[in-house]
């Protein structure tokens, strides 16, 4: 289908003797939230690292649109239009919220080997940064140093930075981690909005949130895909209940 933004084909990654990701084939479509769930150690974060180019796969292929991007470095993958957020907040702590987003938006220029013109004089970049902050709900926090933002706001900044690079695909690794109920609700609402003009791959432990926003669910156990389908089919899947939902709870 033409609206497939990212597709993997039997993606595998081994660490020494351990296979963290085994034969994973999945697809992310434009306008859809594809959530990957599974117990800790199921290989979800490794999967994201493979897709973003932070780790090279041991076997299998990754296609972005028609292009084979297997083995590209993270900056090359990012350039193709993949934005990611990290499970553990990974931002520029000493910089302001605005500067974090501006630095992300600056990648739109193709290259930054520009030595003389003042960085703040690129109106379109500033506008893109502002837009990303608005989209991620950080209105009025532009001048605050990122280190002094609340945990929830730092998570929002993660998403804002990913957005500012103008990606077609967003890889969100547990955007709700460590968030309170109100904050979570805000991000969930935000995700729903973003899905309209992005493909989103979401990794999340919060099952209520996942079932509320996801269009497609993939369940991973021990590095392999156990089941993939609509939220309804996953909810009713016997295998999933047995292996995961039914056992010792969601956070197992």
């Amino acid at each position: 289908m033409s609206d497939i933004v990212l597709r993997t084909d039997t993606l595998t990654r081994c660490f020494g003797g351990l296979t963290a990701v085994r034969d994973v084939s999945l697809a992310c479509r434009f306008g859809e939230i594809h959530a990957v769930i599974g117990p800790n150690g199921a290989g979800k974060s490794t999967l994201v690292n493979l897709l973003s180019g932070d780790l090279p796969p041991s076997a299998g292929r990754i296609f972005f649109g028609e292009r084979d991007i297997t083995g590209l470095a993270s900056h090359q993958v990012a350039r193709m239009g993949v934005g990611r957020s990290y499970q553990k907040t990974n931002i520029f702590l000493p910089l302001s919220t605005f500067e974090n987003c501006r630095l992300a938006a600056q990648t739109r220029l193709g290259h930054s080997m520009r030595f003389f013109r003042h960085a703040l004089s690129f109106a379109e970049i500033n506008a893109a940064a502002d837009e990303a902050m608005v989209a991620a709900g950080l209105v009025g926090r532009a001048d605050v140093i990122a280190a002094t933002l609340s945990h929830g706001e730092q998570r929002q900044l993660e998403i804002a930075m990913a957005l500012a690079t103008r990606p077609r695909l967003l890889l969100l690794d547990e955007p709700l981690a460590g968030m309170g109920g109100d904050e979570s609700a805000r991000i969930v609402e935000l995700l729903g909005g973003l899905a309209r003009d992005h493909a989103i791959l979401l990794i999340e432990h919060d099952m209520d949130a996942v079932f509320a926003v996801a269009d497609v669910l993939t369940v991973m156990v021990n590095g392999a895909v156990l089941e993939s389908g609509s939220p309804e089919s996953i909810r009713s899947s016997h295998a999933v209940q047995e292996a995961y939902l039914g056992s010792d709870g969601v956070h197992g």
Binding site: H75, Q76, R79, L93
Partner: peptide
């Protein structure tokens, strides 16, 4: 200087 790996994941060939 602040966070090189994040620069890479933003798309900079550092």
């Amino acid at each position: 200087r602040i966070n090189e790996s994040r620069m890479q994941s933003l798309g900079y060939a550092t």
